[in-house]
């Protein structure tokens, strides 16, 4: 049987650089010119199948309003296997913001986390403020993956996620949450949702 792996991926970057648009393109192959700031959906999954038939399922966390004032919860980084830090190639300030997110990740996240720096809105290269060389050089110095994407045209999107999937350790201990039940330390967890159905109909009292 082919291997199935599951990983938690977090998105970081300044507001409006296109984090949610990248996810939308990757997961649903759609694009929306007038996207509102992320509301209502920030937990999506998408699967990538590698050449050796290994399937890598990403559990994708989008930031949603907590990053604006640097108030992301530790829960957000917890057990993240990979992070995509996004900047907008037409806004040099957004690369500065990306650098500070990368420093934050290096401090807070698991040291083995795989970080990809992603220059989005490549379709707007006429208004480019961040050169490929500059971003690439920085990524190399910090040991990050790097690529340019356009959530609008779709260019580079599948490629960057597939590159991450390939780089993820294929025999890694699965993260507690992303790897499903079991957790890192022994005794299996309990699934509250499984009981949800039973609970609603649960009026018979003591069945101990």
């Amino acid at each position: 049987m082919s291997k199935q792996l599951q990983f938690k991926l977090v998105l970081l970057g300044e507001s409006a650089v296109g984090k949610s648009s990248l996810v939308l393109r990757f997961v649903k192959d759609q694009f929306d010119d007038y996207r509102e700031s992320t509301i209502g959906a920030a937990f999506l999954t998408q699967t990538v199948t590698l050449e050796d038939q290994t399937t890598v399922k990403f559990e994708i966390w989008d930031t949603a309003g907590q990053e604006r004032y640097k108030s992301l919860a530790p829960m957000y980084y917890r057990n993240a296997n990979c992070a995509v830090v996004v900047y907008d190639i037409t806004q040099s300030a957004s690369l500065e913001k990306a650098r500070s997110w990368i420093r934050e990740l290096q401090r807070q996240a698991d040291p083995s986390i795989i970080i990809a720096l992603c220059g989005n809105k490549a379709d707007l290269s006429a208004r480019r403020q961040v050169s490929e060389e500059e971003a690439k050089k920085y990524a190399e110095e910090e040991g990050l993956m790097w690529g340019e994407t356009s959530a609008k045209s779709g260019e580079g999107v599948q490629e960057i996620f597939t590159a991450i999937a390939k780089k993820l350790p294929q025999n890694a201990p699965q993260s507690a949450r992303a790897g499903g039940r079991g957790g890192p330390s022994g005794r299996a967890g309990v699934d509250l949702n499984k009981q949800a159905g039973a609970m609603t109909g649960q009026n018979e009292p003591c069945n101990c």
Binding site: I39, A41, T63, A64, G65, Q66, Y69, K70, S71
Partner: peptide
């Protein structure tokens, strides 16, 4: 936050 709440710690 997912439903639009803004956080400031």
């Amino acid at each position: 936050a997912i439903y639009g709440g803004t956080y400031m710690l």
